[in-house]
Design a protein around this nucleic acid. Structure first.
Length: 435
DNA sequence: TCTTCTCGCACTTTTGAAAAGT
DNA sequence: AACTTTTCAAAAGTGCGAGAAG
């Protein structure tokens, strides 16, 4: 399994985040950053917060690259999930892990389009160990795995040069957020509505990725009474190595295409026994060339295939009833959190990685925060004091004991006027490039 | 010339409003 | 009258393949 020491060797044995390194964030033009801002946000309010962040005296150290995940291929076995958190007893498991592993074994590819494309498989997790009465937010973001661009070489993916400059992070907020622990634990939490785009000026707030790059989705759990709550109970961040994927604008590996068609109900029409199977499409084209089609055609195999209908050897029927397609109870969605001005959950929403020792594009404490009113309290949050907790292996990650070094930040008061994109929305974190 | 991206197509599933039933 | 279930059309989500762009 991954240990934080292996994850972020540059952080040292205590995984502490250091002072900024010269030029760490200098490659991203501020003017360009404007275009990445969340489109529907009240940017003046956001700017108030972001400007404070960017003026912070401390930024994180140079980007600790994510650990090198096993190269995509059938021979690799993904390591167990890894998590960083301060929510004791909380564990997360990947519900559709088998499906993910099936894709991972071939080398998962995710289509990205200008308009935004959903992920398939989607991240669907079940969570345990939450306080049934407390409220939590569920977030998802996607981060680059390494600094390379990839190309398909006919049989496998291989690095082909340096990665494009990292785009500002956006976070997808689960539509049920905030909801009680009981709600989250009642049924698996699905992120099937997340959309990926390659449009750097995307107006819809989808997660922006570069094509031909390797990415890793991460799921963040934040304890807060509401998005703008001033009372925090901690955060937890999880990632599952088998969910790593390469973003593409068109599938490169035909085996991935087969898997997607077999597993995704929306692609049912492309299965061998579907009306849109290649044989049927070819037949339609021929008929078109010959003249008008007198009657509707039957699915392939019904008449011209000996032994009955064509049968997909990949067996997609079981997956058709994939519960991730079913809408989850919307306990909290009907009562969206109102915009408000407290620090806290937004801080995590804006820069979740800062709480987990992730890359340096994330800022340190907002200097406009007032100091802790109670001298007995630990020092206000600063990512520079973040310590990461290793956890045991297994498919579900057990949360480590509470990390006290940053939790106090969340009970700080201060100006923090943040717009709320609403349940199911995306929040632009306005981050700086990783490379 | 090669690789990558965009767009329109035909198909399936999902969604939500209206109608029907209890 | 209020609530639940069913129906159905529109919207959204798929991969394919041709052609454009770099």
């Amino acid at each position: 399994m991954y240990h934080p020491r292996e994850l972020y060797p540059s952080l040292g044995t205590g995984y502490r985040l250091g002072h900024p390194q010269p030029g760490a964030d200098s490659s991203f033009p501020p003017a360009l950053a404007e275009g990445y801002r969340y489109p529907d946000l009240d940017t003046s309010k956001l700017d108030c917060f972001l400007s404070g962040i960017e003026a912070a005296p401390h930024t994180l150290s140079a980007p600790p690259p994510l650990p090198l995940l096993p190269s995509l291929g059938p021979e690799t076995a993904p390591p167990p999930p890894e998590a960083l958190h301060s929510l004791p007893g909380v564990s997360l498991s990947l519900e559709n892990q088998e499906l993910w592993k099936e894709f991972s074994a071939v080398g998962t590819e995710m289509i990205i389009t200008k308009a935004g494309r959903r992920m398939f498989p989607a991240c669907r997790v079940s969570v345990t160990g939450l306080d049934p009465e407390a409220r939590y937010l569920f977030l998802l973001d996607v981060v680059p795995v390494d600094g390379a661009r990839y190309r398909w070489q006919g049989q496998h993916w291989e690095p082909s040069g340096k990665a494009e400059p990292r785009l500002p992070d956006r976070v997808y907020i689960h539509p049920d957020s905030p909801a009680t622990g009981a709600h989250w634990m009642r049924q698996p939490v699905s992120f099937h509505r997340v959309k990926l785009t390659n449009s750097t000026l995307d107006p819809h707030g989808h997660l922006i990725l570069h094509s031909m790059h390797k990415y890793q989705p991460r799921i963040h759990l934040v304890r807060a009474t509401q998005l703008c709550s001033q009372h925090w109970g901690g955060v937890a961040s999880f990632r599952f190595p088998e969910t790593t994927f390469i973003s593409v604008t068109a599938y490169q590996n035909p085996r991935i295409t087969q898997l997607k068609i077999a597993a995704n109900p929306f692609a049912k029409g492309f299965r061998e026994n579907g009306r849109n199977c290649k044989r049927e499409r070819d037949a339609r084209v021929k008929r078109k060339l010959r003249g008008p089609e007198p009657v509707a055609t039957e699915a392939c195999g019904s008449g011209d295939t000996p032994g009955g209908p064509c049968d997909s050897t990949l067996g997609g029927d079981i997956r058709d009833s994939d519960p991730e397609q079913a809408p989850a109870p919307r306990e909290a969605a009907s009562a969206p959190a109102p915009p408000c001005g407290g620090p806290s959950a937004e801080a995590y929403l804006l820069h979740p990685a800062a709480f987990h020792g992730a890359p340096s594009h994330l800022p340190a404490r907002n200097p406009s925060f007032p100091e802790a009113p109670d001298p007995g309290r630990p020092a206000p949050y600063s990512a520079a004091f973040l310590e990461l907790q290793p956890g045991p292996g297994g498919s579900a990650y057990q949360a480590a004991p509470s990390v006290t070094s940053f939790a106090p930040h969340f009970i700080q008061g201060g100006p923090f006027p943040l717009p709320y994109p609403g349940p199911g929305g995306y929040l632009d974190m306005g981050s700086k490039p990783m490379y």
